[in-house]
Design a protein around this nucleic acid. Sequence first.
DNA 1: CCGTATTTGTGTTGAATTGCACAAAACAAG
DNA 2: CTTGTTTTGTGCAATTCAACACAAATACGG
Lengths: 205, 205
Amino acid sequence: MNPNKIPDIIVGRLPIYLRALQRMADRGLKTTSSQELGEHVGISAAQIRKDISQFGEFGKQGTGYSIQFLMDNLREILKIDQIWDVIVVGAGDMGSALVHYQGFQNRGFRVVMIFDSDKSKVGKKIGEFVVEDIVNMLEKIKSLNIKLAMLTVPAVAAQEVADKLVVAGIKAILNYAPVSLNVPMNVKVQYIDPSVHLQRMTYYL
Amino acid sequence: MNPNKIPDIIVGRLPIYLRALQRMADRGLKTTSSQELGEHVGISAAQIRKDISQFGEFGKQGTGYSIQFLMDNLREILKIDQIWDVIVVGAGDMGSALVHYQGFQNRGFRVVMIFDSDKSKVGKKIGEFVVEDIVNMLEKIKSLNIKLAMLTVPAVAAQEVADKLVVAGIKAILNYAPVSLNVPMNVKVQYIDPSVHLQRMTYYL
DNA sequence: CCGTATTTGTGTTGAATTGCACAAAACAAG
DNA sequence: CTTGTTTTGTGCAATTCAACACAAATACGG
C-alpha cells in the first residue's frame, strides 16, 4: 500500500520548514538553499535535504530550492493545500484566545465553532461566534464533517470530552488540557501544556 | 562536574511523568508501577524505568514507586522544588490568557508581570497586573532576577524582543510567536504554534 | 567553451534511542 | 520458612536517527 512510511519525526519538521519558507516568501525571496533554510530554523543542511528528499526531488543542484515550489509541495504533503475547519471545545480564556487568533489564516485552518458545557457560557458571544452547547456537539461535528478539534476544557473533563470527539468522528485533537489522552490509534493528539514546556527548560537552569 | 549528561529527549518526558503522578496523587493513590504509569502516559514501561533510573534508584522491586517520593525527586531534578517567576511579553489575547491561566499553580511557576510596546495597552489592567511598558523591561527583569519569559508578540517583533530578553538575562523562553528564534546556546527555547501542531496531524488524515 | 563555485540527493558510517529479557529484590500467603 | 508473584534496574541487541562526504548537476564569469 504505502511503499515507504515516513517517520513522525520528519513529518514533524516539515511545518517548521514551511513556516520559515513562508517568511522568506513574504520578504520577496524567490529561492533558498538547505544551508540558508537550516540557519533559519536551527537544523543542519544535510538533515533538511534528507527530510525533503523523502517526498521527491524538489531542488536543483547549484541553485537550491524555489521557495514557492517547495512551499506548494510541502502544503500538499501536509494536506494543507485546503482549509480545514476546526472546532474549539471549552470557552474559557484559552478557547477565547484561539477563536481570536489570527495565526490560522494562510496556514490551512479556520475556526468554525466553539462549544462549552457550562450553561452560563452557552449563548454568549466570543468573537463572531455564539458559544454552542456541548450536548449538540456530536450532531454538529458530523453534519459539518469536521475532523480537527482544539480542546481547552479543564483537566478533569478532558478525557470524557475527548471520548465524545472520537465518537463524533474527530481524527486529530490539539489538547491544551494538562493530561495525557487515551484515544484510538487512528486518532492523533498533539499536546500543548505551558507548564510542561517550562519544566523542560528549568532542568537546564 | 556532571558525570553523565542526560539526553534532552529523556528530560522532556519527565514533566509528563510528573503530571500523571500528580493526577494519581490527587486521586489518593500512594504507589504505582512503571507498567501503570506507562498506560497513563502512553509510553512503554521499560522506557519509563530507564528514564527514571538515569537519576537514581527511586523504585522498589516488587512494589513499584512511591508516588509522593517519585514526585518529590522529579521536582527536584527539574528544579521546580521552588516557584519560578515568569514574565509575559505581549499583552494580546494569548498574553492575557496566560496571565489568567490557573495551570501554573502547583507546577512551579508564577506570572509576575506583563509587558507590551503598544502605548494603548500600557497601563491597562490584565487580571491583577498593570501592563508595563517594554522600555522598562530590561531593568525590571534584572532587578527581579527573572530567568523565564513567555513571548506572545507578533511574529515580526519576536526576534527583536527575544534579543532584548537575552540581554536582560532571561535563560528560557516559551515562544508563542510563529517564528524560529535565534538565541545563544545557553538560552533555551520551547515553541508553541497551534498551526504547526495542527499541521503535524493533517499529514495523517 | 572551459574552469570554478554551488548545491542537491544519497550511500555509508556513526550515534542515539528504544526494546528485550532476566537476575535480584521485595512482598504476600500459607 | 518456603514458594510464587510482582516489579525494578540494567546489560545487550535491534532499530531509528543524524552526520558525513561525495558524485552529479547546474550556474556563472570570462
